[in-house]
Design a protein around this nucleic acid. Structure first.
Lengths: 221, 221
DNA sequence: CAATCTTTGACAGAGTTTTGACACAGGCAA
DNA sequence: TTGCCTGTGTCAAAACTCTGTCAAAGATTG
């Protein structure tokens, strides 16, 4: 799930980005309205967070232009202006929700997740085929040869990453970034241990998750 | 949905009560006007059926007094007097409909349901089956193995959410979002506590509401 | 103010993740 | 080939996190 965050204040931008990445989102950061539009073209995010007050092109204007190209992707405003009329103005432009500054991290996450749930209800029941394994990521569950397999949250994240790379090797660093968090560096055998678990749970596991020495792991698919 | 029935003829009163209970209503029976007013205070029914001709305080008078306290709850007259002027008198007092005696059970039900639909458009007196539990969300009530279960508003919301997801896990975030409100963040064991309550009220509860660690809960169905 | 419903804090218990010790394997140079 | 270095596999214990449960405090409603 990709989120484009636009905010002119660098500290706030980075904090938001980090917060969202912690929760497993892909985050693209824009420091202004023009950049936001440009990045939108490149990455086509699933959700856009816009600061209203920015030098140059403000959030309203960005919203208007985005809505010309795409009316579906949810847009969420971050705003220090909390007057009723601004909220109304934003909603008329097709915004999905508002977050008033200063905000708590809890509130940001709750609202973003809520908007995502409303916009992508189908994401609640994905099903992914990986070789002869069927994975239901949201249920922390998989099946192979008619046999049910219980997974943990981390194992699912790892499988999804492997699936996303479709047979390409995924480096250890990338695993840690995407399944743990950017600034997490376990100092010993943590990653190996989790790969071990996956291999144990999936029949013929060490054939399916192949070790690429000096790099990381790859899923044979 | 609670209905207060007032009628001085015991046989008729019991028959009406039985009829309504068959249809899943909660029925409170009053054998006279004074009793009706007293019971109204106690139970705050969603609908009142009043016989017009009763010894002591008659239906008109009860209606007038009820309307002083509450102008919303629908009132329905049962009457052997079927002349035009009586109907007009009743409607002026704020009654919602008339049923003429002798009445057919079909007519009674049709009129009562019609009045309810008009007065409570948002409620359909829905009935939802979840595994072996039948839930009447609007009545904060459920039944399992013929055993009645009283629910609170929050418990009903939680059940409805679980039902809506049909066996998929519902995340803790989503519970808080949908059953509490977007910007509500209880800081401790609130959600667990409510799940606990539901499990306690529903037989075999912890089997039915399964916990998905790190995610939330799911209803087995 | 009494009854009911909700929230909270403390604590226990279960499940998951991390760690450290050690074994093993692959690559490289002598 | 042998020996060495580095990277990986495996295990079990330790550390940590999440959830269940209880009792009591707080809110709400009649």
């Amino acid at each position: 799930m990709k989120i484009l965050v636009t905010e002119d204040e660098p500290m706030t931008l980075e904090a938001l980005g980090e917060l969202l990445r912690m929760e497993g989102f892909d985050v693209v950061e824009a420091s202004g309205g023009e950049m936001a539009l440009k990045l939108w073209e490149e990455v086509h995010p699933d959700l856009v967070c816009l600061d209203i007050m920015m030098p140059g092109m403000d959030g309203y204007e960005v919203c208007r232009r985005l809505r010309e190209k795409d009316s579906r992707t949810p847009i969420l405003f971050l705003s220090a202006k909390n007057e009723e009329k601004d909220i109304v103005a934003g909603l008329e432009l097709g915004a999905d929700d508002f977050i008033r500054k200063p905000f708590s991290t809890g509130e940001v996450m709750a609202r973003i997740k809520s908007v995502i749930r409303r916009a992508y209800p189908e994401k609640g029941s994905r099903k992914i085929q990986m070789a002869d394994v069927v994975v239901w990521p949201d249920e922390l569950r998989a099946e192979q040869n008619g046999l049910g397999i219980e997974l943990t949250l981390r194992e699912v994240k790892m499988l999804l990453l492997l699936e996303e790379k479709k047979g390409l090797p995924v480096s250890r660093d990338e695993f840690l970034d995407r399944c743990w968090g950017m600034d997490y560096f376990p100092d010993s055998r943590t990653l190996d241990q989790h790969v071990h678990m996956l291999r144990k749970k999936i029949e013929g596991g060490s054939e399916l998750i192949e070790t690429v020495r000096g790099v990381g792991y790859r899923f044979r698919g």
